[in-house]
Computed example of a mutant assay.
Amino acid sequence: MDITQKIAILAGRIKEQMDHVVNEEATKNAMVMPFIQTLGYDVFDPTEVMPEFTADVGLKKGEKVDYAIKNGGELSILVECKPRTTDLANTQFSQLYRYFNCTEAKFAILTNGIEYRFYSDLDDANRLDKRPFFTFRLIDYNERDIEELKKFAKPVFNVDTILSTANRLKYTNLAKTAFAELVKDPSRDFIKSLAQNFYDGRMTQQVIDDFTPIVREAMAQHIKEQVSQRLKSALANTSGEESERVIIESGDPEKTQLSAEEDSDIVTTQEEVDAYNIVRAILAGVVDPNRIHMRDAKSYCAILLDNNNRKPVCRLHFNSKSIWRIGLFIEGKEQKHDITALTEIFSHREALIKTATDYLE
């Protein structure tokens, strides 16, 4: 089982256990230690993962950092843990800062068990940066995040490899955050600069105010259209032919038919793709993930075994803006369940596995 599958399983378990994790020790035991294990480190081997790592730092004697991870016998990563409910954005990490400055470790992690902030000394040698160069959110991540996380896995860990891309990654993430804020709340200067490209009149405050909701909506529509087009292309390449991607609602999975004509009205969302990847991760223990396919339709998105419409694993009913549903197939009949977050799909793990194994048998 690779890191992608291990992280997906861990994310599902933590989602179920989250309300029971009420202090720092519980956060360490239920969340942080399993996370370190997914990276390939033996948390029960003190020569590899040292809990309560102690080093005398200046006048601060006997201070401890929660974990120190060694790779190849060399101290590589320091980990400071906070309780699950801690907002890391407003957290001081002075211990981590002091320890990093006086050890040979090149990376430090600040975490509350759900969010993992990775730091190094990109701005000033041997001094921990104030901003992380990479942030991994265990219950809200994408494939690119997983690829970055894999660089910290024990079998492939290489300081030079990580640092070679860390600076670019840091500023790329900061730019993404700034862009997201711009899309959400475009500044007056941005609105003015953009509107001057197509509005010939005088740029008064009233004009800028009038254009603000228009520009915001135009940006959102453009992003949605770009994502939709890329998803369509990716799905078409996966299935071999665009005409084999779409399912027409029939009610009976054995009578479902394919159609290319309906494709222009279908938009595959990022949420559907993320849900598809979660289902693949859940089933990875019983079936090759490459045998799990997705076909989108107007009324639902189907996830199938062997790309066979007679073997539906589940259906994603995400078209409604007010509620999401996942359709599970119990003894050949679809049963719909409401979900409010994609991670709730993990709570239907047993039903999904049973459906898939029934087809295999």
Rank of each mutant, 00 (worst) to 15 (best):
L149V: 13
R144L: 12
I162H: 09
L149I: 09
T85I: 05
K106S: 08
F157I: 10
D66R: 02
R137E: 14
V156G: 01
E115C: 03
L149W: 08
F93C: 04
T135A: 09
L138K: 05
P83N: 11
A89T: 09
R131H: 13
N101A: 07
K151Q: 10
T103M: 01
P132G: 06
D121F: 07
L110F: 04
K106G: 02
A68K: 09
V159N: 10
S164Q: 11
K106Y: 08
N101W: 00
K106N: 14
K70H: 12
A125M: 09
V65W: 11
N126Q: 15
L75M: 06
V65A: 10
F157C: 01
T86W: 01
V159D: 07
L110C: 03
F93M: 06
T135P: 04
R144Y: 15
F100I: 02
N90G: 00
R98W: 08
K130H: 13
K151I: 01
Y119A: 02
L138D: 03
K82C: 03
A108G: 14
F100H: 09
I69N: 10
Y67D: 06
K64I: 09
S120W: 05
L75G: 11
F157S: 04
K130R: 14
T103A: 10
T103C: 01
A125L: 13
K82A: 05
T161E: 09
E143A: 13
S76A: 14
L163T: 11
E147Q: 15
I77R: 05
K154L: 01
R117N: 13
D124S: 14
A153T: 13
N142Q: 12
T111M: 00
N112G: 07
L78E: 12
L128G: 02
Y97I: 00
G72D: 06
I69A: 09
L122H: 07
R127D: 08
V156Q: 10
T111D: 02
V65D: 04
T135F: 09
F107E: 14
E143G: 02
T85D: 15
G73E: 05
A105T: 07
F157E: 09
